[in-house]
Amino acid sequence: MISPLYIRSARAISAQESFASNDLSKEIRSITGNRFVYIEPNYQQYFTIMQLRRMSRLTRIGLVTAIECLKDAGISQPEAILTGTGKGSLHDTEKFMHAIREFQEGTLNPSPFIQSTYNSLNGLIGLHHQVNSYNTTYVHSGFSLEHAMLDAALLFGDNTIGNALIGAFEEMTDEHYIIKEKLGFWKNGAVSGEGCFFFYAEKDKNGSALAIEDIKLWFEPEENQIRQGLEELLSSHQIDWNDIDVFISGRNNDKRYDHYYNLVADKLPSSTHHIHFKHLSGEFDTAAGFGIWAAARMAEMKRIFPSLLLKEGSRDNIKHILFYNQYYGKQHVVYLMKTTA
């Protein structure tokens, strides 16, 4: 059990038109090649030339997403900033590696090095909003966002803070795409993606449409462990499989991993809606953020985005949402969420 995270606002920059409208009402964009590339907003309205000068592709969208997320919640200074990212600003890491080689370790531009640091976006958000507070970054692949969430819940639990800005950010580059290709990431149907997601969460319910009630994490689990863990999760919240109105799964078209999601789907009644999201975002370490964003927005708007439906159920009233994602069989995460309206 965790101290619930009451989501007051959620924002996403993704390969879909998810940012300006903050929903998925626009026409769905299909993939070009084997990569979903996020749509960048117009930065001019957010930043001066001086502010933009050192921000790279990912830190720009990260900061814009955080700005709008806080604006939606009417908050200027959250009490903590927690993020998760698998790879951080890859463009900067690569740029610096190339510079080391090109200039043979001579005098190098420091900016890519600074921005390659995984917590640089956190620092920038803090600077932009003048937030002096708790601030941390988790960099554990498919667990990154979840530890940011869990840590925020712990900080709620011991009354260190009453609210937090929580987010995830990821980008793909040409070079890293090749590396992941060699590592076999795209061999069996999954396509590459990227995106940035921010959530403003409070310890108290006021004004939120969705609560993250619990988070479970398993590393390379046996199927039995997942089964048992899910049963325990539901019973500890005094609900059963029939209470789940929406199941959100991280299916990524890689058939090797479908059996995990089937474990859950097979337990659910036919009236439960089954939703997926990676067909619109692509696969990446923190892709779960897109699914959580969708859950938060659907809870707020009290409707299911049709483009996410994998199997339509019959429930009109959405209360309990079960979210299950796994990243290449290694990191498995489950969120139990509840609409509060």
Partner: peptide, 11 residues
């Protein structure tokens, strides 16, 4: 130690 793990990077 695989029951629960993470990695932190804040410089």
């Amino acid at each position: 130690l695989t029951d629960f793990m993470t990695t932190i990077s804040t410089a």
